[in-house]
Amino acid sequence: MNKRAGIGFYLFLVIFVFLVMFPFIWVFLTSIKPVGEIFTSFRWFTANPTLASYEAALTNRPLMRYMLNSFVVSSLTTILAVGCAAFAAYAVTRLPIKGKGIFLGVILAASMFPQVAIISPIFNLVTDLGLRNSYIGLVIPYLTISLPLSIWILSTFFQKIPFELEESAKLDGASPFQTFRKIIFPLATPGIFTTAILVFIAAWNEYLFALTINSDDIWRTVPVGISMYQSEYSVPWGDISAATVIVTIPIVVLVLIFQRRIVSGLTSGSVKE
């Protein structure tokens, strides 16, 4: 539908973007207000901007430690999941093995499993291995989410690479693994990278496993750490809005840089092309 965009359309866009971004705008404006003002007025712009809330957010709770924990756990998960998934997706889309349908069916089913259905056995497993309050203890359950997701997205990317390339490599005498390593893998790199971004975001955002398994404050991840800023007796909205701004910035940067890739990854599984 190639309708031309008129003034009304752009007005709609501005309102739309404003509504979607409103919570962020308001939280940012709150984070630079003096704490007293937060509780007394609904004025949008403060006359005395201050960074006091940021200082409080960083000193009252180990926010930087939460960020580090999230970063390490998400990175390890991404490397492990995408690594295994690249092999599996290649095998399932391009090699003559049996049981592909069953395998993909199980993977799709696994990606739909509710986390709460596996949390108690995983909790027992991680406890028995002595891995509570550690990075590996979170990476194990995160594979439940990230591995099926990676295999599912990567198999669409591998499918798009022309099959003729493999055949000519075969004619030139390359072994199946050489074909994968030298021909297909380099061509699939953009797809693998896209998958890695999506897996990273999924792991970064995970809440239930992180809440249950890493219960020590210094091992908490960002989502759990943020939700612990409120105590039973007081809700320090200044700290919370500053902390929210701090943890949102890396994601905004990630989204701004990789938005095209993210969209292509998100939609690859859902639309036939």
Partner: peptide, 25 residues
Amino acid sequence: GIIRASVLIPWAIPTAVAAMMWGFL
């Protein structure tokens, strides 16, 4: 690009963080 980014940011932030923001609002 702006639309795409503004649409992606709510999706990309952790649900727990979004819940905290809405709790404040």
